[in-house]
Amino acid sequence: MQSSEAILANDLFQLIIYFCVVTAMTVVMLGGAYLLGQRHRSKTVDEPFESGIVAAGDAHIRFSVQFYLLAIFFVIFDMESVFLFAWAVALQEAGWLGFIEAAVFIGVLLTALMYLWLIGALDWRTCRQRIDSCNRRSTEERCIGL
């Protein structure tokens, strides 16, 4: 940390002011719209929009496991990238030894990525798309993975 505490605090103070102004502006915009906007009630408006068809079922549907998987991947990979940030900024100090270590790190990361790739965790195609492409390539093993 190059700058002393005092300057940092001063800078942060400006940031806080800026943030407050921005927030105030947002509130004014929303509040203004709330006050100025017209109001009316009708039955059809109170239904979820589903392209003109009457809504069926609950909106809280169960969604594909892919999304959960992705969330987990993200958490992990994003964390790993934090280490790379640290390395990037300290590249000079870390030197070649640091480079080797980072290379190993990245290598492992890439291997893990390859692993995910090959077990099909990164495949977002739908089942039908997958089967189609399999037929085209006439290799069936890939489909069985996930």
């Binding site: 719209a33 100025l36 906007g37 109001r39 009316h40 408006v45 979820p48």
Partner: peptide, 12 residues
Amino acid sequence: KMFFKEDWIPPF
């Protein structure tokens, strides 16, 4: 237009 549009929050 935006300011004067209905400030609508869906009931659901």
